[in-house]
Design a protein around this nucleic acid. Structure first.
Length: 128
DNA sequence: GTTCTGACA
DNA sequence: TGTCAGAA
């Protein structure tokens, strides 16, 4: 993770500041948290501490709400996005399976001509 | 003074 | 969602 994103994820804002930055009431901000839409950190005194990313998320939630999307809908959107990212990460981290290796070897085999079609006298080789 | 949780005329 | 209470 780069320093820039690290700073954006630093939770340093108390709810009072977040209220002014988002024009949301503390009631609304806490409610969205209860719905799992945001998950601010807590400091020693159990006070919610928000990061710049949290601010963006809250502003985004507000926009969705203004566009008529309900809480359930927003939940679905974030759930789907999280799933999409999980899939991408899984694809990156997963070591090659036997199936992957077979597919790669077969592709390479075909790329080099494979069994070809000796009958028609022309190979199916494709240039790289 | 600010924020937290829980509750509801 | 607003707002009040009682505590931290």
């Amino acid at each position: 993770m780069k320093g820039k994103e690290l700073r954006r994820s630093l939770a340093v804002l108390p709810i009072g500041t977040v209220m002014k930055l988002t024009s949301l009431t503390a009631r609304q901000i806490r409610y969205y948290e209860s719905q799992g839409l945001v998950m601010p950190q807590r400091n020693d005194g159990n006070r919610r501490m928000y990061s710049l990313n949290d601010i963006d998320r809250l502003l985004e939630i507000k926009d969705y709400l203004d566009d008529g999307v309900n809480i359930a809908g927003i939940k679905a959107i974030y759930a789907q996005q999280a799933q999409a990212q999980a899939d991408r990460k899984a694809a990156q981290d997963r070591p090659l399976t036997d199936a992957d290796v077979r597919r790669i070897l077969q592709d390479e085999f075909i790329r080099q001509g494979g069994l070809g079609h000796p009958q028609d006298g022309l190979d199916q080789r494709r240039p790289l």
